[in-house]
Amino acid sequence: MSATTTHDVATTPTAERVRGSGRLKDGRQRSPFSMVVMLLLAVLWSLPTLGLLITSLRTREAAATSGWWAAPWEGGWTLSNYSRVFEQADLGNAFLNGILVAVPATVIPIMFAAFAAYAFTFMDFKGKDFLFIIIVAVMVIPIQVAFQPLLDLLGPRGLGISGQYLAVWLLHTGFGMPLCIYTLRNYMASLPYSVVESARIDGCSNFQIFWKLIAPMAMPAMAAFATLQFLWVWNDLLIAKLFLSNDNTTVIVKLQQLLGTQGQGAELLTAGAFISMVLPMIVFFALQNFLVRGMTSGAVKG
């Protein structure tokens, strides 16, 4: 709607005068209805998370005898849930595991996918359409389909790496590959083809063209994919639960285990849940623009 603004201001000379009353700075009509509804929605959307944060900061007794909304007057504040969840649920180790799993699993696929995306964008070859359609199709396949054979392949009957970081790196690299190729290829297709052509005439090899020209230009798309992939890997339950041993497992799996043993550890659960959200939230706020770009580039993941 921002296109209207200039138009409006131009056609209504009074816009300047009535700015304070009923109009926004850019001259659009102020809409009290939208303001109220959006405020309500924003509050409604945040309350559950806020409730969790409050509960995690209260003692077990306080949290069990009054609702989180009553905390301001009922009190019962404490930080001990956080220190105890680190001690009892081994959350520090799990947090480290989460990072060590997620960072390589986010970056490695980009390397492999970028070359494939380069070939799909700047080269002509037989079967190009067919191969790219495989990528589009594979994005839709539910990953559950792959688990049983992969457990055989990576487990003791096969390579024997199930339970280690390596297994999860490999799986996330493979599962993230179609989306990464797709996202990068869509972005590269918007880059000027003439750059590549003139570099070829200058005698650059494809590796050089990719490394010095295309990869730097495709950085925004890589960052977009990386943001999505990081959130996806960090928040993943299934793959981590199946392919990581208890010593190597992530915060999300620990959290799932805490949810399973409710009753005795209810106060630890809330603290654990909040800890599991800290890192993705930082990533989210820092890289929100990349995330949006990643999503608008047609991100579908199976």
């Binding site: 339950l237 959290l255 949810l259 599991s276 993705p280 995330l291």
Partner: peptide, 11 residues
């Protein structure tokens, strides 16, 4: 969007 399904369930 940044919250995992598991944490959302806990919430």
């Amino acid at each position: 969007m940044a919250i995992s399904f598991v944490a959302a369930s806990a919430i």
